[in-house]
């Protein structure tokens, strides 16, 4: 019984830690977008993807998908990302992506604006947005 309970807990934890996220854009954006493109936009290096200008929207640190996005897409821990942006912000060399408090807000922003790129848990995705990649 205990063993089953532990197994169940393990599966739940695995699920929580590795819940897939979807990087989303407006449905009118048809171009292929690579992980490199997404990383460049979210690291503030370039807003241009395939000739279009994109504005990244981030989730707040408190959202579990944020840490997963940082590690899986940007390849660094959230602490490293914060240190990276601290350097740029306090030296006038860059501004981090805007943060919103909830994934439903990201979904709404992306659905309404052709130039916003964001990410949400895959389970939230509906027809109002286009998924460009999952991680």
């Amino acid at each position: 019984m205990l063993k089953n309970l532990l197994m169940a807990l393990f599966v739940v934890m695995q699920g929580a830690a590795f819940a897939e996220i979807a990087v989303i854009v407006h449905p009118s954006q048809g171009a292929a977008i690579s992980q490199d493109d997404i990383s460049r936009v979210f690291m503030g290096r370039s807003g241009d993807i395939a000739g279009e200008t994109f504005i990244p929207v981030n989730l707040a640190d408190s959202h579990p998908a944020k840490a997963h996005f940082d590690q899986a897409v940007l390849g660094r821990s959230s602490s490293q990302i914060k240190a990276y942006w601290s350097r740029l912000v306090f030296t006038g060399k860059g501004t981090p992506p805007k943060e919103v408090g909830s994934d439903s807000e990201v979904l709404t922003l992306v659905a309404k604006n052709p130039n916003i790129i964001g990410y949400v848990p895959l389970s939230m995705v509906d027809d109002s947005v286009r998924v460009v990649a999952t991680f």
Partner: peptide, 14 residues
């Protein structure tokens, strides 16, 4: 780090 949440969101739609 940057507390801009309440300032920028409406601005995006402008």
């Amino acid at each position: 780090m940057q507390c801009t949440k309440f300032v920028w969101v409406p601005a995006l739609f402008v």
